[in-house]
Every structure is written in structure tokens, then in C-alpha cells.
Amino acid sequence: MRILKYAAVAALGLAFGLYESTFLTFVSGWLSYLKPILPSLVFFMLLERRGYALIFGACAGTVLDLFAVESPSLAPWRLLFIAATLWFVSERILTNRSVYSMVTMTLAGRLFDWSWLVTTEWIYGLMGRDVYLAPSLADLGRTAALDFVVTVALFIFGLLVMRQYLRPRRALAYG
């Protein structure tokens, strides 16, 4: 059963990766800023399913790089580092399980993601290659706005459907 769950999470990662790398690039308007991979990573983190988060991030990132129009942005490592950072933050800094912490972590993850892309662009530049990977600040703002909506929706889903976040956090968080 456990393997099946991991397989389902991997399949979800592949599906979301395909969605962001191919489908989304054909869509215009606000829908084109709807990028669910990062909020889902945070969702898995706050559900304390870190293994799922890492598998999901690796699978989604792999697909993002496989079908990258520009040069690869090392997306699997980007998402794994984001997952690891969120893991650390959720353990040591934002230990409560509120919608606020989830939104904060998603936005922090999005900023980290953008910084990674800007740094990758800069490194490509040092190697003499002109590559455009990072979205403009305006696009980043639109994506962040939709991240907020997706995160709140996921939180409510977790709360009402999965009955998560209702039980008290383990001693570590409050100790």
C-alpha cells in the first residue's frame, strides 16, 4: 500500500510537471499563472509527508527540465532544495499549522524558486549563454497571488476533506 501511495504521488508529480511545462504555456490570461507544484510541495510538508514532498518535487522537476523550452534550469534540484528548505522552516521556524504559515511558506518557496532561476540565468551568462528563465517581477506577483488562492484552497481541502491540522502538533513543535 505504501509503495502504491508513493507511486500515486510520483504520478501526480509527473502530471503537474507536464501541466506546467506544456499545457500552461499555451494558455493565456490569468490561468497561465496558475502553477500548482510549489503549493502542493508545501501542502505535503505541512501534512508531514516529507517523503511524498521529495518524490513529488523530484518527479515534477524532472518533467519541467525534460520539456524545458529554454536551457534546463536544474528543476529537480531546485524543487528538492525548496522542499528541504521548507522542511527545515516547518520544523524550526514556522512550527504552527495555520493557513498563514502555509501561505508564508508557499510565498517564501516562490521567492526562493525565482532567486534560483535568476542565479541560473546569471551562471549561464558567465558561460557566455544568453538564457531567459526567470519570469518578470510582474509575472512573479501574479503567480504569487494565485499561489495564495491555491494554498488557501489546499488548506481548506486538508482541513475539511482530509481532517488534517485538527490534531495538536507533536511535542517537538511546542517544546
Binding site: 501541466y19 511545462s21 506544456t22 499545457f23 499555451f26 494558455v27 493565456s28 518533467v63 520539456f67
Partner: peptide, 28 residues
Amino acid sequence: VQETLRWALSPLANLSAVIGTRLGHDAA
């Protein structure tokens, strides 16, 4: 490994692109 993954995922990527193209053209 990457090439094998691309080969395996190409049909899904094509399908995703076809759906995206249709929706994109409708909304353009």
C-alpha cells in the same frame, strides 16, 4: 536516462499540448 524518459512521456506531452492549444486558441 533523460532520452528514455522523454520518449516515454512524449505522447502525454503531445496530448497536453493539443489540449492547451485548443483552449488557448479559444480564449485568445
